[in-house]
Design a protein around this nucleic acid. Structure first.
Lengths: 354, 354
DNA sequence: CTGAAAGCGCTTACAG
DNA sequence: CTGAAAGCGCTTACAG
């Protein structure tokens, strides 16, 4: 029989290596995984022969099947990966997760709840655990996940799973209360993804807001409203706009519309649900020659670097997304108790609403 | 014999499900993977029984061992994940990669070349292919990767592997040539990670620069120097600073030092190797009351959104990192030829160097 | 269209 | 410390 002619070099396995060396597969495996289970001399021989033959260590696919663990943790993002990777808050969260995983020898698999549908199901279930970030457009993605795998929700809730949150309502109350002490004549609110059906513009009586508990932005609105009431404003008379995606391009038209209102209708205080929104207001206001804070006061939410490393600095709430990620990762790895957790935030008095 | 008392619900496998239904394991597998291989009626029965028993589909670990494919592509980042996730250029690249992977049913595993060392080796080799981004501090990480797996280098070179680049030298030449037409009196250059040993500050004769071909920033410097010569400047007399990490906090002290030079020594043009550097200059210059571009002209490199969605807008080179990511992903998936590729860039005339 | 069977490449008790 | 052997949970030719 002719030897098979093959372009690809035949891949070498642990078994091949054992045969080549005349030792058992157990010893080869131990050489890579449990150095104390064999003599240093044999280990050395195995490792150097492996190197010589181009064997780069046990195959991770086989290992994970055998051990039942992949050392991979999946993060399921509610938004697209393109959005999430370019959003400072999501990136901070991912960085915090990655930091903890790395130290404990795990790696990070990125998934999106808005992923392409056609793909083979279940390629995600290779992960040992799941961190789910943000309100999923549909919980279908989560159905493919075996029920016994650990799962943690961040910035939203999944029934019978632990969640990690920040104190959205009190934080929003705090920043709004501060802003309202300046007695603005025409406060306004810019929401983020708060309507049941998409709305990128002014919120009217026709729009239904998402229910409390569904989205953190509803809690932020509750905080704003409580502050308004506390300072004698009627929240029902305070105009609201809604933004569908936390990006400059999606924010800009809505904000342009607000800033182009006649002088006696244009808000002189805008309470924004994210720094991204507030920064977009800032850019567009500067282009129009509006003075901050004299003509327009402005608050954000998140405390991202871009809002602080600039002039004027944003008045905002700082949330520690990095720490939020660390905590979620520790919970998934079983290094912290798997129970609901709420992080505190901090009011930052910047220049946009001193 | 007593049944084992177990807290965890016994996990159900494809085999269990087949036995339960009285069909072969092949049929169950086909119900999930190859609908055309069995009758719709049987498939329906299998799927609904699976749902009832809480079987969420074939285990990905076993599947990937059996098929030899995980549908996971790993991105190995030269920087830490924390840095990379917070860097606009790296994030754009990742977004481009993720976009293509997603459409083709693959997922993204994030690894860092600066990862913690102690971890079990080879958990990375689960991936079907590898995209390696940026100059690795050590190529050791790459040693664990089986030689026959596809690998693509981005923004640097790996021997006998295809790479994806932008035209760094001509791009830098273009932006510098433009800036020099204003006949600055004291041009200066701010480099990014260009010295062999770490240097965060002024580059002197004692510092050795990384060799050409090792890092893209060397190509950028070559472009700057060619432009300087073309306009009658002696590059050797143009002061250079070096930045070790492309973040505000690491840039700020070096840039503070530059801006605090006496008026007759402070550069009136700064050619920066990244937008992040240029934006930091901008912030610190504004804080000092320097007028841009009257007192100081400024150019960047990258074309990130933060530099364009602001006033004044950055004069810079726009590189399409998103497209760079898409191309690398297509190469890895075998959808594009695996050969060296160079992307073109675009000069953006902003307000910082009109 | 269905079923019996081999085997992907490992790890790990277990016996020696 | 070492070796023989079972089996992790699948997919896929192959025979019927």
């Amino acid at each position: 029989m002719e030897p098979p002619v093959s372009a690809a070099p035949p891949r070498i396995t642990l078994k091949d290596l054992a045969r080549e060396l005349g030792v058992s597969t157990a010893s080869v495996s131990n050489a890579f995984n449990r150095p104390d289970q064999l003599s240093p001399k044999l280990r050395e021989r195995i490792l150097s022969e492996a190197q010589r033959l181009g064997y780069s260590g046990p195959d991770a696919k086989a290992r994970s099947l055998r051990t039942g663990r992949s050392r991979i943790i999946a993060v399921v993002l509610a938004e697209t990966l393109t959005y999430s990777l370019n959003d400072a808050v999501a990136s901070e969260l991912l960085a915090g997760i990655a930091e903890v995983l790395d130290v404990h020898g795990h790696t990070l698999l990125l998934l999106s709840g808005r992923q392409h549908v056609s793909q083979a199901p279940g390629s995600a279930n290779i992960a040992d655990g799941f961190i789910v970030y943000g309100l999923m457009p549909s919980l279908k993605v989560l159905n493919d996940i075996p029920a016994q795998r650990p799962m943690v929700a961040v910035d939203f809730n999944i029934q019978s799973r632990p969640s990690v949150h920040v104190d959205n309502e009190p934080a929003s109350y705090a920043v709004a209360s501060h802003a309202l002490t300046a007695r603005p004549k025409r406060p306004g609110i810019i929401n983020l993804r708060l309507t049941e059906s998409p709305c990128n513009g002014r919120v009217t009586a026709e729009h239904t807001l998402l229910a409390a508990g569904q989205t953190i932005t509803r809690s932020r609105l509750a905080g704003f409203h409580r502050a308004l009431e506390g300072q004698g404003f009627d929240p029902a008379t305070v105009p609201m706009w809604n933004i569908e995606e936390n990006t400059f391009d999606v924010c800009a038209p809505v904000i342009g519309e607000i800033l182009d209102l006649p002088d006696d209708e244009r808000p002189d205080l805008l309470l924004c649900m994210s720094d991204r929104i507030a920064l977009t207001v800032l850019t567009l206001a500067e282009r129009r020659g509006l003075r901050i804070p004299e003509d327009l006061r402005l608050t954000g939410f998140d405390g991202i670097a871009e809002g602080q490393n600039r002039d004027p600095r944003l008045t905002t709430i700082r949330q520690d997304s990095h720490e939020k990620g660390r905590i979620a990762a520790r919970m998934i790895l079983g290094l912290a108790p798997r129970e609901d957790c709420m992080l505190h935030t901090e009011l930052i008095l910047g220049d946009t609403c001193p």
